[in-house]
């Protein structure tokens, strides 16, 4: 009888160990900088192949846009006879950290500026040039190039002071149901991140990788393109590129990903 008891204890211990192993294996992946607390970059929802494509700067097709942006940076444009480099010099120094802290409140314009609207403000006011169209090759190249200068830097947006009002608007937008499907951002990206929607894996909807090379799009796309896509998928009216609603949402979404590294240009499916 005595040995039997010993055996039972042994089996019980073995079972406990097994459960322990299973419990940790579900949570075992260490995503390194791509996870901060419970906030996970879209990177962590991709396949190994897509992740490999992103981190190899040669294989990453988004780098084509970064290269084009580098060329545009030094190109003279507009009546003032200036290029971006005339004022900003070396982008590697002056643009470092921009992607991590934008969108920011602009006192002069009395509104929130993201990287795209800031580029166009510069083009129009300082260079006296034609602004770029939002989803044009020039704009995507420039945003890819500028955001790429902050590669790996943690997202850190300012949400106090005059930006607070925008932050609250963005937050309200995130939780507001819209469209014929009556869905808010949170229904997919907060409640069901990691789940499957049709054939796609839902991510937390973090913005740290934008502009992103989306394999489905076969090109780089902006965050606002993604917003518009999401809005039409729930059969809601889309807002325009650079609309105040989307700028506010951009600030809020960026804040949700605070601490995550800038990955521009990321690769997503």
């Amino acid at each position: 009888m005595k040995t039997n008891w010993n055996r039972i204890t042994l089996i019980a211990t073995a079972c406990a160990v097994c459960i322990g192993v299973f419990a940790t294996s579900a949570n075992a992946t260490d995503w390194g900088p791509y996870q901060v607390d419970d906030r996970r970059s879209g990177y962590t929802y991709m396949t190994d192949e897509s992740r490999a494509m992103q981190v190899d700067s040669f294989q990453n097709p988004g780098m084509i846009w970064v290269e084009q942006g580098a060329e545009l940076w030094t190109e003279t444009n507009g009546k003032a006879g200036k290029s971006c480099a005339s004022c900003h010099g070396e982008a590697a120094e002056t643009m470092k950290g921009v992607a991590a802290r934008y969108p920011v409140y602009d006192e002069k314009a009395k509104k929130l500026q993201n990287v795209e609207t800031q580029i166009n403000t510069c083009l129009e006011k300082n260079m006296q040039a034609e602004p770029y169209k939002w989803e044009s090759k020039e704009m995507l190249s420039m945003t890819s190039f500028i955001n790429n200068q902050s590669l790996g830097m943690p997202v850190n947006v300012k949400i106090d002071g005059p930006a607070a009002e925008w932050f609250e608007k963005g937050k309200a937008f995130y939780y507001e149901r819209r469209g014929q499907l009556d869905m808010a951002c949170k229904h997919c990206h907060e409640d069901n991140a990691g789940g499957i929607i049709r054939a796609n894996t839902l991510s937390q909807g973090q913005s740290n990788g934008f502009p992103t090379y989306r394999l489905k799009w076969q090109k780089v796309g902006s965050l606002h393109r993604r917003f518009r896509g999401c809005n039409s998928q729930v059969r809601a009216d889309r807002f325009g590129y650079g609309a105040d609603e989307y700028l506010a949402l951009e600030l809020y979404v960026k804040w949700r990903g605070r601490g995550l590294p800038i990955e521009a240009p990321s690769v997503r499916n």
């Binding site: 294989q59 097709p61 084509i64 394999l215």
Partner: peptide, 8 residues
């Protein structure tokens, strides 16, 4: 074949 083909 995708846009911007990568081949190794």
């Amino acid at each position: 074949i995708s846009a911007n083909p990568y081949m190794s």
